[in-house]
Amino acid sequence: MSNGVSNGVSNGASSASNDAIIQTRDLRKIYRVGQVDVAALRGVDLDVKAGEFLAIIGPSGSGKSTLFHIIGGLTPPTSGYVRVADRDLAGMTDAERTRMRRRTVGFVFQKFNLLPNLTARDNIAVARYLGGTDSKPDAQFEEALNLLGIAQRLDHKPNALSGGEQQRIAIARAIVNRPAILLADEPTGNLDTENSRAVLEIMRDLNQRLGQTILMITHNPEAAAYGHRTVQMRDGKVVA
């Protein structure tokens, strides 16, 4: 673990490192709010290597969530280059981005975002179903479940689970299809210190034991310290 400074700035995609699983170049996103154009991203260059645990920190409005949404295929960029797991997201249609989300990325959100009417097991099963796999999860996922320590809580619905347990279920759901990238948006934002530490250690274990690439957005420098390196954003740009 190190708190290194971003090495992502370069002049084009061709100069990016070949083993980068995420590459962005001059990535821009402009939102239309009423009659006003708001630039959320103003040219972001970033490389994330496969197997890396990267933390992105920055104040509110710095553009980190927008970056998260673009890399996760939830919204298209306005311009620029973004490549995730050898797939160019910039030219993708909405349907192609939807398909990409099924198996290439897994999301962990601050508010857990579990389906409230399904048990923890079924929440995981839905992700597996949408990912195109209805069969029993593989041995690696079983290992991950043991790592998460939620095997005994799978038949409970979210309202019967603590925040920490819900977030672990959300992590299990995010990795059940063995995505290339795990995207976590403030994963400890709704957790107490103990549960925050537990979730972060789980994520670090997933990265170390299973080689899971993780991109985590956080306000919290202590949480960011769990990553291999930290990228700082401000005003829609990577600043350090």
Binding site: G72, A95, T98, R101, L114, L130
Partner: peptide
Amino acid sequence: TREIGILKSLGAAKSF
């Protein structure tokens, strides 16, 4: 609405 957003984030198509 939020649940629909969750399903979409998991890759649920419009047809689903």
